[in-house]
Design a protein around this nucleic acid. Structure first.
Length: 596
RNA sequence: GGCGGCGUAGCUCAGUUGGUUAGAGCAGCGGAAUCAUAAUCCGCGUGUCGCAGGUUCGAGUCCUGCCGCCGCUACCA
């Protein structure tokens, strides 16, 4: 088991949110929340976690958004980088370094990577027929072209596929093609690009994926079907927003590196940045050039191909480097690739364009982060699509989170505080006392294993079951009645109950960091169990500044171990961990949704 | 079209490699308790496990067909 090893280097790699819009719940449920649960657990276990990511800011959609608003792509990226990193901070996603792809460092690493792959013969030049916008001269991706389907005559078929008859198309097949951006007729002309030669990696990818029997079935099966039919894939684009191509004949005015190529390199470049920021520029190698480290990636299922085929191929092709690699070891391949399914919204697929979306920002303005994290984990699309509805959100908050866990905490603390105002000194423990404590303590193994295996729903359900066990114990022992006759026995009961709560606090920390921190304080502890995240401004060699989301996790005090609550510790005046939500919010939110 | 998934109690879902009387949470009904944000605890579930066949001593759990829903289909992040 992974948790038996001491202080393992663990890279947690959540997918990079794209900076062309606000992020909705369907985005964060896939990459942010699961990755954070995993990272927080691994830190509590004592492992050396490095969680890196950032906003993905290149590519056509950013350009299109910028054109639409008549601003520069940089401005769009700037706006959404800020918005997204605030979303993630407020959700408590504990990145060691959440940066962005428009940094000098990232460009440097990407350039080295591209050049090295080119020199290693992994990037091959091919000429294809590409579609260009007649108005801007930029590449027009297939899905940005619409026209009449030559097969069924549907007039709104897209360049890649006809939504009516389902046939796959080539944009040149379309009758009366037009750009969905401005309606202009696209021009088709020959253009040369550098293609990542995926077929040359097939023999290494297949056994590698086959060996990953612990991957979720959706990831493994899909990946295996992909490697059976690999074709070279273009890694450059006719566009002027992106990282320049470090190869002769690819001028930056017209050609840039494909956004996905540089986005996945972000996992590496952000680690390099993290190391530099902390003044130990070589530190990233302990994660990336260390065969004993463990790398876990988190994303929505639409990102699987990039993480199980393209990025591994790039890593294999890069070998030991490269300027950056410097012959100090091969770059580590993904160990786990955790892809979640999709979250629907009140039964409908999330869609920004059809205004079927609940934005993270809007939710956090009205609700606390932990109930949101709770819902997204307990009802998340871990193995199949699942639905978000406000009625369910209300129920999960009021009838589960608050009624079970919140209530156990509140009744225990209230009883203890009112009667003793400190952690009471226990007398001799009864059989039931010991059994209760043992049952709760077994959770450290059970819940921990589930988290390590990325079975977050199962892990959270087990923690909730133990909380319920705590309620049963308190009910059965009825300290509020016992105290009238036997103060010492009441002291013992409350001591046991407090220990239960204290242990559960740790078990819930990966899922509910904010309320666990609050409980930590109410129990009379000092220090951060799960502290605040912070923004830090970074200045690079070129004088440009950017802001990263980070935190000082080395000072956090939690341990993934049963409570050793000290008798006599002063308790703070209890207050509820969670707010009860008024059923009226359901109607309010639905109204808000339809009027948006 | 191809690939994959789903369809289990009123609702949301669990159900390892096929094996005793199919489970949980919520809702509902009855009771207890009243420390706690009326939050808790105990008791109560005969559901054609989508439909029809098949393999097997035995299938929710494997195979085939059908019906319904959904996703993916890489040159859109």
């Amino acid at each position: 088991m992974a948790e038996e090893r001491q202080r393992q280097k663990i890279l947690v790699a959540p997918a990079w949110p794209y900076a062309a819009g606000k992020r909705h719940l369907g985005h964060v449920v896939g990459f942010a929340v699961p990755a954070d649960i995993f990272a927080r657990y691994q830190r509590l276990k004592g492992n050396d976690v490095l969680m890196v990511s950032g906003t993905d800011e290149h590519g056509t959609p950013v350009m299109v958004t910028a054109d639409r608003e008549s601003v520069s792509p940089h401005e769009i990226a700037e706006r959404y980088n800020k918005l997204i990193r605030e979303d993630l901070r407020d959700l408590g996603i504990s990145y060691d370094c959440f940066t962005r792809t428009t940094t000098q460092n990232h460009a440097r690493v990407t350039t080295d990577f591209f050049r090295t792959l080119y020199e290693h013969g992994c990037l091959i030049e091919k000429t294809t027929l590409g579609a260009f916008s007649a108005s801007t001269g930029n590449t027009l991706p297939d899905r940005y072209i619409e026209g009449t389907c030559p097969i069924c005559g549907y007039t709104e078929a897209r360049g890649d596929q006809c939504d009516n008859c389902g046939n796959q198309l080539d944009p040149t097949d379309l009758i009366n093609p037009r750009s969905i951006i401005d309606g202009s007729t696209p021009e088709f002309r020959e253009t040369k690009h550098l293609f990542l030669d995926l077929p040359q990696f097939a023999d290494r990818l297949r056994p590698w994926i086959e060996s990953k029997t612990s991957w979720r079935a959706n990831v493994r099966n899909f990946s295996l079907s992909l490697v059976g039919n690999l074709k070279p894939r273009a890694m450059t684009r006719d566009i002027d927003w992106g990282i320049p191509v470090p190869v002769e004949g690819y001028p930056p005015e017209t050609k840039r590196i494909y956004v996905w190529f540089d986005a996945v390199i972000g996992y590496l470049s952000a680690a390099v940045e993290w190391a530099r920021n902390r003044g130990d520029a070589e530190a990233w190698r302990e994660w990336w050039q260390n065969p004993d480290s463990a790398h876990a990636y988190f994303m929505g299922k639409d990102n699987i191909v990039f993480h199980t085929v393209i990025w591994p191929s790039m890593l294999l092709g890069y070998g030991e480097g490269g300027e950056l690699g410097a012959g100090k070891g091969e770059l580590h391949l993904p160990d786990d690739v955790v892809a979640s399914e999709f979250l629907t919204m009140e039964g409908k697929q999330l869609s920004t364009s059809r205004a079927v979306a609940i934005y993270v920002r809007d939710v956090l303005e009205r609700y606390d982060p932990d109930p949101v994290r709770y819902f997204l984990t307990a009802a998340g699309p871990e193995t199949q699509d699942s639905d978000f509805s406000w009625a369910e959100f209300l129920r999960r908050n009021n009838d589960e989170l608050l009624a079970n866990w919140g209530n156990l905490v509140n009744r225990t603390l209230t009883n203890a505080y009112r009667n003793f105002s400190e952690v009471p000194t226990p007398g001799e423990l009864t059989e039931e006392d010991r059994q209760t404590l043992a049952a709760i303590e077994s959770g450290f193994g059970v819940v921990g294993r589930s988290i390590a295996e990325s079975k977050f729903k199962q892990a959270l359900a087990e923690a909730m079951r133990l909380s319920s066990l705590g309620n049963q114990y308190v009910d059965h022992q009825a300290p509020w009645a016992v105290i009238k006759e036997d103060r010492e026995r009441a002291a013992t009961i409350l001591y046991v109950a407090l220990r239960v709560v204290d242990s559960l606090k740790v078990l819930f920390t990966p899922f509910l960091p904010f309320s666990s921190q609050k409980l930590h304080e109410l129990l009379g502890y000092e220090g951060w169990l799960a502290g605040p995240l912070e923004f830090r401004e970074i200045e690079e060699d070129d004088g440009e500044k950017h802001t990263i989301l980070t935190g000082d996790y080395s000072t956090w005090v939690g341990r993934w171990e049963p409570s050793e609550l000290r008798a006599g510790q002063r308790l703070r005046e209890p207050e509820p961990l969670f707010r009860k939500l008024d059923p009226e919010i359901v109607e309010e939110e639905l109204t808000r949704l339809t009027s948006a």
